[in-house]
Computed example of a mutant assay.
Amino acid sequence: MDDQLKDVETAEQLRACYPVMKQLRPHLETEDEFVARVTRMSEHGYRILAAWDEGEVVALAGYRLQENLVYGRFLYVDDLVAAEKTRGRRWGARLLERLTAYGDRAECVKLVLDTGMANALAQRFYFREGLLTGALRFGKFLKAGAA
């Protein structure tokens, strides 16, 4: 099944990811907006690993390699979602497994992701996959985000 996990490399593959990403990020109103954002983010190392089944994207993970003074080198998972109709088929677990291997190869010390405090289903999944809580993230919107 791992051969069904592929790094997204073409505009066509990226567009195929939009319907699944929209389930996680409903504020992305159009496919063009999604493509433009991902294109900008890719300049800063953002990548998408997609799970394909019968020619259709059924799950995906957006990620990047980063380094900071807290962890050192780490793999950050920005986005992780399985299409609603395919949940429970272990696509998320397979994506996390592949991302863990990517992080190991890149000599990362940690895989990190954030989830909403109220997202109990995702939290249960992450605990089951061996991820542990390590911090609370605080933030506030800035003027540019209020427009």
Rank of each mutant, 00 (worst) to 15 (best):
M21H: 06
T133H: 01
A61N: 03
A101K: 13
R105L: 14
L60V: 08
L69R: 13
A135H: 05
R98M: 11
A36G: 03
L113W: 08
F74C: 08
L69H: 13
L121C: 02
E54A: 15
L80G: 12
R47P: 00
R87G: 15
F138Y: 10
P19Y: 07
G88N: 05
E31Y: 01
G103I: 03
T115I: 08
A36I: 09
Y18V: 01
V109G: 14
L75P: 03
E43K: 09
A146S: 07
E97R: 00
E43S: 10
E43D: 14
T86S: 05
V70N: 13
A59F: 02
A61W: 02
A101C: 13
L75Y: 08
T133N: 10
D32N: 12
E84C: 00
Y76N: 07
Q123N: 08
D79E: 10
D3N: 13
V112E: 15
A11I: 03
R15N: 03
R105P: 01
V77E: 02
Y71Q: 13
D79R: 05
A135E: 06
L96G: 11
L99T: 06
E107D: 04
E43A: 14
E107Y: 02
G72H: 02
E84T: 09
G145V: 10
L65K: 05
V77D: 03
C17T: 15
E129V: 11
Y46V: 02
K110G: 00
Y76K: 04
C17A: 14
K6Q: 13
E56T: 14
V109W: 11
F125M: 07
D3M: 14
R98A: 15
L99E: 04
A122S: 09
D114K: 04
E54T: 10
L95H: 07
E54Q: 12
G139V: 05
A82F: 03
A106M: 11
F34V: 10
E54M: 07
T115E: 08
R137W: 04
M1R: 11
Y126S: 07
Y18I: 06
A11M: 03
L142E: 12
K85R: 05
R98V: 14
R47I: 03
E29V: 10
E67C: 07
A147P: 04
A147K: 11
V8F: 06
T10R: 03
R37K: 08
M1K: 12
F34C: 11
G62C: 06
A16V: 04
T10Q: 12
A144D: 14
R64V: 05
F138I: 04
E97Y: 05
F138G: 00
A106Q: 06
R105W: 01
V8T: 11
Y126I: 06
Q23V: 09
D3P: 04
